[in-house]
C-alpha cells in the first residue's frame, strides 16, 4: 500500500533562514507518526506545508494522494488539522463550532455524536471560550474530524495541559487511530512520543536527523555504547503525581 503522506526534498526559506532544508519521509496508513525537535527545528513549517497553508520553495509532498502544491484545497478536503496558536470564533457554543466547521467542508454531521466521541457531550451548549484548555483541545480534535479525514495533523496538541488531560488526549488519539485514521503530530514531550507513536522523525536545523520507531532509536543509541550515569528508577515523579492525584480528568 502506498504511503498516505509522502514528502521528498522539501525546502522552505524565510530570507536567509532555511526553515525546512531538504526534508523527506513517508507516513504509512494507520500510523501515529511524530515530528520531534527543539523550537525552530522546522516542525511547524513542515506540517503547515503539508496542510496546504504554506507553499514550499521546492520539493514535493503528496498527502492522501493529492499533490499539496497543485491542489491545496483538495488536501484540505481530505485532512483534519489542529493548529498551533489558533482559536475558534467567540460567542459560539461548542456544538455550533462543530456545525460551523462541518459547513466549511459542506458536510452534514451529527455534531452531538462527534462531541460524545471526544467526551464533550455535556459541554455542547457551553461557549467555546469558556471551556478549559483540555476541553478546548478535545473540541478542536472533534472539529478536525468533521470531514472524516484520512490524515489528522496535530501540532503540539498537549502543550499547556495538565498530566491528566495529556493522558486523556493520548487515549483519544489512540482511539482515532484505531478507527483507521493516520495521525501526524508534533510535540516537545519525548515521553509523549515514546508512549504514543509508532515512528518518530527527529528534526534539527530544518533537516531530519533520525527516523525510526522509538524502541529502535533507543536500541541504536545503546548499540553505540551509550549508558546513563544514573540507574533507571523504578518510578519517576510523573508516576508519583498520577498515583497521588489519580487519572481522572480535572475540569471546572
Amino acid at each position: 500500500m502506498p504511503p498516505v503522506v509522502s514528502v521528498r526534498e522539501l525546502r522552505k526559506s524565510y530570507g536567509q533562514i532555511k526553515a525546512v532544508d531538504g526534508v523527506s519521509f513517508d507516513v504509512q496508513e494507520g500510523e501515529i507518526f511524530a515530528l520531534l525537535g527543539p523550537n525552530g527545528a522546522g516542525k511547524t513549517t513542515t506540517v503547515e506545508i503539508l496542510e496546504g497553508l504554506r507553499q514550499a520553495d521546492s520539493g514535493t509532498a503528496l498527502v492522501a494522494g493529492v499533490d499539496v502544491r497543485k491542489d491545496p484545497s483538495g488536501v484540505k478536503e481530505r485532512i483534519g488539522v489542529q493548529l498551533q496558536q489558533s482559536a475558534f470564533p467567540e460567542n459560539f457554543v461548542a456544538r455550533e463550532i462543530v456545525d460551523l466547521f462541518a459547513l466549511f467542508y459542506r458536510r452534514r454531521v451529527d455534531s452531538m455524536a462527534l462531541l460524545r466521541s471526544v467526551g464533550l457531550e455535556d459541554k455542547a451548549k457551553q461557549k467555546q471560550e469558556k471551556l478549559s484548555g483540555g476541553q478546548r483541545q478535545r473540541l478542536s480534535i472533534a472539529v478536525a474530524l468533521v470531514n472524516e479525514p484520512r490524515v489528522l495533523f496535530l501540532d503540539e496538541p498537549t502543550t499547556g495541559l495538565d498530566p491528566q488531560a495529556r493522558r486523556n488526549l493520548w487515549e483519544l488519539v489512540r482511539a482515532i487511530r484505531a478507527r483507521g485514521t493516520t495521525v501526524l503530530l508534533t510535540t516537545h514531550y519525548l515521553d509523549e512520543a515514546e508512549a504514543l507513536c509508532d515512528r518518530v522523525a527527529i528534526m534539527d536545523g530544518g533537516r531530519i536527523i533520525a527516523l525510526d520507531s522509538p524502541a529502535s532509536l533507543i536500541q541504536a543509541l545503546l548499540g553505540r555504547g551509550f549508558s546513563k550515569p544514573i540507574v533507571q528508577q523504578q518510578a519517576n515523579l510523573d508516576d508519583v503525581f498520577l498515583d497521588l492525584t489519580g487519572r481522572a480528568l480535572r475540569e471546572a
Binding site: G52, L53, K76, S86, A87, F88, P89, F101, F104
Partner: peptide, 16 residues
Amino acid sequence: AERQRGVIRRVMATPI
C-alpha cells in the same frame, strides 16, 4: 481580533 487570535488561520485550513 480574529486575525490576531488565529481564528482566520484555522478557518483557512478548511476548504471554504
